[in-house]
Amino acid sequence: MLLIPCPNCGPRDETEFHYGGQAHVAYPENPNELSDTEWSRYLFYRSNTKGTFAERWVHSTGCRQWFNMLRDTVSYDIQAIYPMGAPRPDRAGTTGAESGTASLAADSTTTGTAAPSTSGTSLSSTTAAPEGATK
């Protein structure tokens, strides 16, 4: 079981939390202009990252607040906790290269696993993985 450090309540058991899926999935600017394919990409397609992954959690039996977490999907190591709306702490300085998950780019949902970080703990080695738009 994970011991998750809630930013309000301190470390609590994983059973007190609910998972909110991938973080930083931006809502499309003009949803009405999207094709069905693009809309389905936004709704249903998420990264399946091996390595550091940004995800949302809510402390549902505690303070009932949402927060973002950077977690290594291999080692389950929790690397960072940061507020909703804040940029990924390990992506500071990288801008422009990312696209929203509504993108039709062939690699927008698949290459998260193409170059997994083997070091696991090095945040800088995973900066190229496409994870969707950062708010």
Binding site: C9, R12, D13, T15, E16, T61, G62, C63
Partner: peptide
Amino acid sequence: YSTEIGNIP
């Protein structure tokens, strides 16, 4: 504290 006791919130 708000927590779980016997799996009950």
